[in-house]
């Protein structure tokens, strides 16, 4: 379970990026975080992997206080949370296979496990035939699939995706969301930050709506309301 306990984040003194956010996300949930640009969605996700530190409040991952960890302990948390970004963040000089393998190497996995799990992850996202292609040889949707394979290859409890369809056309976007749903059905918690209304309304899952850093709505089977 993920707990945001009274979280506030201030980057510049004049303005709250997040204000008194309280959230609980249960295992195997599929949660969409929606809101206008600047509402604080990315900040919320960055705090969970401690890419940013909150100004106030605590965040727990299954009882582990993420917000109190030092730099040396962060990798452990980050290996339990797979991350997908709008701009993919693939290493440009590594192939699809190597990009996915890299996350396993970083986690200290054995070569034999890497040889077994990377093709499995690439198979799951439907990209086994592009394993030896470099990022610049892949389409946007394919790059995002590689990123998703990288996020799930260490079998994390949670995958968080920040606008994963933000740079993709509608049809490709639907494919990516379907992929996330499939991963969710296999037992992984998904946190999806997006402002894609069609996608959210189609899902019929929990929707957290943010406005100016505050949670203004939190509904099971929610809709994207502006």
């Amino acid at each position: 379970m993920i707990v945001f306990d009274n979280i506030s984040k201030i980057y510049t003194p004049t303005q709250f990026a997040l204000k008194n956010v309280n959230l609980r996300i249960l295992p195997k949930e599929f949660v969409s975080v929606v809101g206008a640009s600047g509402a604080g969605k990315s900040t919320l996700l960055k705090l969970l992997i401690a890419e940013e530190k909150p100004t106030e409040g605590k965040i727990f991952l299954d009882g582990l206080e993420v917000t109190s960890l030092g730099y040396g302990e962060l990798p452990k948390v980050r290996r339990r949370i797979g991350t997908v970004f709008q701009d993919y963040k693939l290493l440009p000089n590594k192939t699809a296979f190597e990009n996915v393998a890299f996350a396993m190497e970083a986690a200290g996995a054995k070569d034999s496990d890497i040889r077994e799990d990377v093709p499995e992850a690439l198979g799951l996202v439907g990209l086994l035939d592009k394993a030896d292609n470099f990022p610049h040889e892949l389409s946007g949707g394919e790059k995002q699939r590689v990123a998703i394979a990288r996020a799930l290859v260490n079998r994390p409890e949670v995958i968080m995706a920040d606008e994963p369809t933000g740079s993709l056309d509608p049809i490709t976007s639907i494919d990516i969301i379907k992929l996330l749903l499939k991963i969710n059905e296999l037992g992984t918690t998904i946190i999806l930050a997006t402002h894609n209304k069609e996608v959210v309304d189609e899902l019929g899952r929990r929707v957290i709506t943010m406005e100016k850093g505050e949670v203004v709505r939190d509904e099971e089977k929610g809709k994207y309301v502006i």
Binding site: G72, R78, A106
Partner: peptide, 16 residues
């Protein structure tokens, strides 16, 4: 730096 940042975010340790 971008590469290092990515490594960091996928959970690579400092020494790695």
């Amino acid at each position: 730096r971008e590469e290092i940042n990515i490594m960091r975010l996928v959970g690579a340790s400092s020494w790695f």
